[in-house]
Design a protein around this nucleic acid. Sequence first.
DNA 1: ATAAAAATTTAGACAAATCTAAAAAAATGG
DNA 2: CCATTTTTTTAGATTTGTCTAAATTTTTAT
Lengths: 223, 223
Amino acid sequence: MKYSASKENYIKAIFHLQQELEQVSTNSLAEALETAPASVTDMLKKLKAQQLLQYERYRGVRLTASGKKLAIQIIRKHRLWELFLVEKLQFGWEEVHDIAEELEHISSSKLVDRLDEFLGFPKADPHGDPIPDMQGRIPALRQSTVSEMPESGFGRVSGIGDQSPAMLALLRHNHIALGAHLQVRKRFEADRSVEIKLAGHPAVNISEHVAKNIRVTYENNPQ
Amino acid sequence: MKYSASKENYIKAIFHLQQELEQVSTNSLAEALETAPASVTDMLKKLKAQQLLQYERYRGVRLTASGKKLAIQIIRKHRLWELFLVEKLQFGWEEVHDIAEELEHISSSKLVDRLDEFLGFPKADPHGDPIPDMQGRIPALRQSTVSEMPESGFGRVSGIGDQSPAMLALLRHNHIALGAHLQVRKRFEADRSVEIKLAGHPAVNISEHVAKNIRVTYENNPQ
DNA sequence: ATAAAAATTTAGACAAATCTAAAAAAATGG
DNA sequence: CCATTTTTTTAGATTTGTCTAAATTTTTAT
């Protein structure tokens, strides 16, 4: 079934809001979508008629199984396109969101799956958010810091705690940037420093202080 | 300025129809867009108000300079996306048109230009049609056969004349497929056979008969 | 418990893009 | 050259997604 970009945006917004609260209110949706509450009410009726959500007036809204499935498909597309833009077309991680908002509504599912393959079935987008797979499974990712990663674990830089010029200079020197992939090579108990490796550069040692400042996203299913 | 997908489709259709006839009629547009003539009239008024075309009632339509510019931008996007789908995502050349119809309406011009760069500033799409460059210049391409290409000229296979099983077997054996890039290495006057080279394979010799059956698109500006 | 505040829905309108049916203009062919 | 056919436009509706203003329901706080 095909849905308009507008409907897809509603479904996606409801899905995201549902992460926090089980029940999603009309007003919170209106705010998220930057639209009038009355417009939301109208749309909810249409989406209910299409069985994408449960809705009783004044009672808030909740996605059905097929609504959730649709939401995950859209999120999958969005995140794969973001990664494509950053990884293949050299966009900065901050500039890709708006473009991906448009690309996520391209309908061909064969296109998404081929894109997934082209990117090597990635687990996270450039912001560190998990990418659902073809079956809609969302990989469990852990958001923490380099100081908590296991030895030989792979991760992606998702944020920096202390953004002082001194810290940024150190990070830049070691090619540690938002979105960078890194591997923890060795942990040293003596001073809790960590040796990390970034693609294309020799391994470097970073102090516990620095390791605690580098937020990373990594897969949480090592078996 | 941003235009709806619908408006962009009108502009593109007018541009294509204008290649044949200077003046484009309401009915021919309606047929091309599979829409009612009355809808075309309505839209033409809107597009005229936006200075994209000249239009007097009952007099047909003609793109202005800015209308032409927009049309070329859209065609550029369409053809770059088609090439991307075939070259990077392994789609067949026959399946890409509909997907590119959607992708061509993604607005970011930075995206198109990055895509162009990513693909190596190609001159033609998988169907052999020329891709306009960033400035809107359309490369002059010649549609002919391998038997007419100059020595050391590069081209892309755009079609096959005799599609008998025997011919197709020969072509497949030599990795000659629609969309393939090839170079004419040497022409032999003795039997008018031609030595051609495809990427990733050793050069092969093909008879005049076969060379006349391979339709190619190649740049016509050797200088 | 109930009055005020907040949230939500209804009612009525509008813009974009489309349609059908009818009217008007242009083209054509004895 | 003028009657018929063809093309094009106008008129009036429809659908989708949106809006504002007013009405209604729920929540909250005294």
